[in-house]
Structures are given as structure tokens and as C-alpha cells.
Write a protein that binds this DNA or RNA. Structure first.
Lengths: 215, 215, 215, 215
DNA sequence: CATGAATGAGTTTTCATTCAT
DNA sequence: TATGAATGAAAACTCATTCAT
């Protein structure tokens, strides 16, 4: 696993608090505007310890995003939808589950997506690591969630599975964006409030499955 | 139209130069890392005038993005594809035309997309305006390009045109991202070099049209 | 001449004030402990302007030492002793004159000497320039003061003038050190108070001239 | 002798290790850039014990320099040259011996000289002690090495022995500086490589003995 | 009106020193 | 008594914004 400053002994509780605090503050402000002092303060540790544990702001960011993706991936309970009966049910469950995740881990979700766009404002030295992280991430976590489903489905001849994955990914992204916007406007939203978004995504999947063209 | 500092008389040529320069520099560096001094220098105006005309960095950004979207929209020559015979040809033309636009106006394209992701690093006071701009943008500019086409098409019963537009938008975004990445790696790329990307988008459209499911 | 940041227009009075203030504070605290904030404050300018004019702390130091050496060299009025009749008189005049200079420009003297010892705590990038400055300095300013005298003197056969110069330089250094120590202990010392030091240096020169060995 | 924190019981081996390590690190980096953490680590003791034994960084420095000077003085084996036959031989032996010492104890030599120039970057509270140390040092250690020789020599009437010592000291300093510079450029230099420097110092002594003036 | 020199608040990072264990 | 993790003051440098000319 990715290990920062292995020489420095770390208090796991402090590491945890720093990571949580960094997730929140990086997610809220982006890399450049996040202040290490704020992160330390929110984590109730000294500034010094943040640098002692993580080296510098760039590596703290890297560690935070790595951790967030790990947390999100570990969290994912595939069984929730992979043992659904039919496809419609399956998609609904998957979407609902992801929105629940996003509701429960809004900062993690946001940072995870944001980190992709922020790549080129990061210090040059950590960009390669971030890029590698995303490469891995793209081919695993998010898409993986649907991968088993796809594998079991009969695809129309001529449909390239790679292309299909891209499309599913794109839909996932818009879903995230919509849910995010909704959450911002309704900070106390419950899962029930996301029915319209869920419906919409179902509709998108439906188009993907059967096409929009009249026969 | 959105009007900045209406009381201040402005030299249209300077406004133009500032906007062009701001587009380039915001696109290249992002909001936070763009320096107003650079923008002024590139525009060959004084820093003072930038602030006099646009108030502050945030509003300059807002004005720049607004202008970029307007320029892009105004630029679009629908006729290029709206008088295509069949759908395949039409999509190909549209995609090709957009990539040409992106090749010709790389900064405008990049800033227009980037501005979406940057939303939350902007000063709080201009975020609402930016959000509004994007709301409008989503329902107009990019998708608009295909709107007339959609209107003429026979949709399968039960397909919601709004949803379909979202999907098209999503595809457009991935296309942009791919083209951007390619352009960055091949700074002198010509339109011919984008054939693989065009092919891929055609494939995506094809899935959208006919669905991925075996019948 | 050595010119810093030629693009930046500079207010000569501010440049002067900064240089004077930097001389004092570098001389007092050494490079590492001198704070740019103090230098700016003493010069009654903002911190920003110091960086604008001089780039960074290292280059400010370089500019300051360069200026100090120049001021000292320009100041030196060789005629004071070069037209002395005999050697004893000449040495006395030279020594006295230098102590007067040191009394009048204590910071300049101190920094000029100190800068030599500080060389390797300076940022790597300015060390070459400092070394070059000292190379030039060693072969000109201080020794130069006596050079014309030496050239007119008849040397005992077998005496290498380069070696002799080294010796004179060494004596000069001890003189400086003694005068400095005295000045520190007697901040309001006048030239009259330095008679013992002058006498001592005369004695040192005398040994140099005639040797210590009984014949 | 100078005793630090007399109340604290000290493990002599740790004291020794700290002093050795401090000598090396202060010599290499100077007072300000030397890190107490490095000193402790190199000495294989905890930082806490360094502070417990020596109080603070300033007093550690003072103790280190004091010890270095003591070690150097104790080390000196006068007999090496005091039983030389004639003066030329004696000076040569003395010089050669000192350079050997410098080769064997480069850190001690370097720190001992460096500490003089660093005086004013030290904390104000230990400056007086350092100054006192140097006063004493000047009248003993280095010059002492030649003292017995001088005592046996017939001096020209009117030559003050104190002055002569100063001159010898000054020559010693330049010798040290030259040897140091040479050692830095040729890290693996052997005593044989220092012949040119030895020759030069002999020439300097020669001038001192017989004067530079033609008779 | 236009200019661009000047300002100084704000941010990252280091390291001597402390003190809970 | 020894340890070394934790602290936080301190210092260089940037850049949006102002305002005297």
C-alpha cells in the first residue's frame, strides 16, 4: 500500500482525524485554497504534525485522495445489486446505493471527482502518482461496480464493451453532478428526495439499453 | 446581456483585448493561478484598467467565461450538419465540426469546460452567477448544436427528449476531454489526426441510437 | 555594473534606503538571521518592494555587499597616504585613515569582512557571484591601498611580493578585528581612542619591514 | 573549567558522543544551520538528553567549542618541533605537524576557526563566554605551540613579543584557510599534497624573521 | 481617465524546545 | 531518568488591489 514517511511513527487516531479533516477541506475548497492550518485546526492537531506525518501539502493531498478512494471502494457492497433479479431492478438498486453512499460520504465523493479535474494545479512532483491513481481508479472502482452485470448481459453484435463502459461512466458522472447540485441546495436531503434523479438515471440507462430510435 | 460596471465608459478595443487575454490565461492556468498582472500585460493595458472595467478578478472571470460561451455559440455554424442527409452523416459532420472548433479555439473550449469544475474555488459572490450561466449553457450552447436534428427525428415512444439531450451532452463532454488530452500530447495535431476519436464517438452515438441490448 | 531586475523601475531614494538598511541589518545579524521584514521596516518601505526590487533575500544580500564594497572603494582617498614622504609616516597615515573609515562606516566594514566568512551559508545560486566579487575585491580594494607603496619600495632579494601582500592583508585583518572589538566595547569611541591600535599596527609593520631576528 | 548544568548527572559516554557529533555538525553547517535533531541522532542519544545535559543549542555550541579547543590543545605534541636543531627546521616541523593535525581533525580545526566568525550570530547570552574563550585561546593554544621557540630566540631590540605572536597567529590563520580550501577541493589529500602551502608559510616566516626591506 | 509602483495580508514550512509517558 | 512526539512561533515570498501622479 501507499505509505507516507515510513520512518515517522504515527498516532493512528491523529492520522484518521487529519485525513478526515483534509478530505472535508480539500473537497470544499480545492487544493489551492485549502489551508494546511485549517486542516490541522479542524483535525485538532498542530500544524507541525501534519507536515511531520505527510511531508508537505502535496503529499497530504495525495494521501487524502488515495485514502478516500480506498474508503469508497472498500465500502462498496456489490452484493446490494449484483444479486438483483432483472436488469431494471439491478440498475435501480445500484443507483440508489450510490446515492446513499454519496449522501453518507459527500466529501469523499466530491473530492474523488474533483481530484481528477485538479490534477494540473498540483505540484509537478505528485502529478504522476495522482495520474497513476486515477488510471487504476478508472479501471476499477466506479466502473467495476457494473462490470459483473455487463459480463452477464447479452450485447447486441457490434457493440464494443469498452465503448459501452465509457458511456456508463459518463452517465455515472452526470448522476454524481446532479446529486451534488441537489445536495448543495438541500443540505438535509434524505435518500427519498433523490427519487427524481434516480428515475432520470433509470431513464438514461433505458435509452442506453434499447436505443432512442423508433424502430 | 450581462453588463459589468455600467457606469464606466469603456474602450471596446481594450475590453476585447482583455477578454482575449483573460481567456488564454484563465484557460492555461485556472482561476487561482492566473495572475491579473499577466492578463493585463498580455492585453497590453494597465492593471488599473482591468480593475476599473471589471471590478475584480472574480468578475473578470465571470465576464470572460460569459463572453467565451457567447463567442462559441455565435460561432457555431449549424448549417454545417443540419442539412446532412442521414443521421450517420450528420453525427459525423457535427463531431468533426466541433473538433475543428476546438482546434481553432482551444482556449475557449478549455476554459468553457474548466469553468464548470472550477466553480467552487471562485469567490462566493460570483458562484451563483456562474451556476446560472452553466444552467443556461447546458440547455443551449453545446446541445443546441444537435437540437434541430433531434427535433426532426422520430423517437421511440417513452424516450424523454430532455434525458436524451443529457446523454448527448455527456458524450460531448467525454469527446472534449479525449480531444483535449490528445491535443495536449500532440500540440500540432491536425483534424485528420482525430479520426480515432471521431470513430469512437460515432460508436457511442450508435449505441445510443440502437441500444446495447441484444434483441 | 551589476544590475538587479533591470525591468523594474526603481525609486533611487528607496533603493538607497533599502541598501543602507540592509547593510546595517546584515552586518549586525549575518545573512541567516537578518529578517527581510526588518530590513524593509528600517528602510521605511514595504516588504513587497524589497522583493520587487531585489528578487529575493539572496540577491538582496549580493546587491548589498556589492554596493558596500563599491562605496568603500569609491570612498578611499589614496592620496591621503600615497604622497607621504617616508614609509613610517605612510603606514601611520594609512592605518589612521582606515580606522577613520571604519569608524565612519562601521556597518560597511563589518559586512564587507563578514560576507567572506558567510559565503557558504548563502543560497547556492548566489555563491559564485559572491566568490567572484571577493576574488576581485581581494586583488583590488584593500590591498590596493598599499600597492602603490610596495611598488616603490626596494625589496630584499628573494622576497616574493605575492607573499608580502598576503602578510599585509593578514595584518590588515587583525587590525580590523581589533578595531571592531574596541568599537563594540566603546560605541562612542573617537579616532583618538585608537592610538594604541595604531601603534600596534605600526609595530607589526615594523617587524615585517626589518624582521624580528637579531642580526 | 567550564561546567554545564552541574546538577545533572551525566553519562560520560553520552557526553562524549554528543560533543563529537556536535563538533562534526556545527563544523559542517555552522551554528544556525546545524539541527539539534541531527546532532542527537548522530550521537545516538535522544534530543531530550541533549537539552538536559547542555540546556539549549547555544550552550551546547559553547561546550562544543570549548571542548574542541581543549582537545586540540591537549593533543599538541610540542616535542615534535621544540627539539628541532635550527629555526628553519623548527618552523617546517611545526607547520607540517599542524597540517597533519588539521588533516586528522578537520572538524575540530574548522569549528575552532569558524566559531570566531560566527560569534555574532550566537544568542546574545553566550556571546560573552565565547569572546572570553577566544581571548584566552589567542594567548594560549595556537601560538603556544611556538612559544617555547620564541623564548629561546634572540629578538632584535625593540621587537615586542606580544606583537610578534600576533603576527605568527595571523600567519597561522591564513595557513589554516589555505589548507582548508585545499582540503575541500581535494577531500582525500595526503600530507604530501600540502608541500606548496608549507613552502609558502616558510616564505612568510622568512619575511617575518628578516624583514622585507632591502638593507 | 489611465497608469503601474507600492502595499501587506496571507500561506507554507522549519525546528528549537517541551513534557507526557 | 530518558524518550521522541508534539507544538507553534517565526520567516520568505506572492499577488490582488489601491491610489498618487
Amino acid at each position: 500500500m501507499f505509505e507516507i514517511n515510513p520512518d515517522v511513527p504515527k498516532d493512528p487516531e491523529k492520522v484518521e482525524r487529519i485525513l478526515v479533516s483534509a478530505t472535508k477541506i480539500f473537497a470544499k475548497n480545492g487544493y489551492l485554497q485549502a489551508k494546511t492550518a485549517d486542516i490541522a485546526k479542524t483535525a485538532e492537531v498542530s500544524k507541525g504534525i501534519v507536515f511531520r506525518y505527510f511531508g508537505d501539502k502535496g503529499h497530504l493531498y495525495l494521501a487524502t485522495v488515495t485514502d478516500v478512494i480506498k474508503r469508497l471502494t472498500d465500502q462498496a457492497d456489490f452484493s446490494v445489486w449484483t444479486d438483483a433479479k432483472d436488469l431494471g431492478d439491478m440498475i435501480e438498486r445500484a443507483v440508489r446505493y450510490k446515492i446513499e453512499l454519496q449522501l453518507e460520504y459527500p466529501d469523499e465523493f466530491r473530492l474523488s471527482v474533483q481530484s481528477f479535474g485538479e490534477m494540473n494545479v498540483l505540484p509537478a512532483e505528485i502529478q504522476p502518482a495522482m495520474r497513476a491513481l486515477w488510471q487504476q481508479q478508472t479501471t476499477t472502482s466506479l466502473t467495476t461496480l457494473e462490470e459483473p452485470v455487463l459480463d452477464r448481459m447479452k450485447l447486441r453484435p457490434g457493440v464494443d464493451k469498452t465503448i459501452l463502459k465509457k458511456l456508463l461512466n459518463a452517465i455515472g458522472t452526470t448522476a454524481f453532478t446532479d446529486a451534488e447540485a441537489f445536495m448543495r441546495q438541500h443540505p438535509d436531503a434524505k435518500i427519498e428526495d433523490f427519487e427524481p434523479i434516480i428515475k432520470q438515471i433509470q431513464a438514461e440507462y433505458e435509452i442506453l439499453e434499447h436505443g432512442f430510435a423508433a424502430k
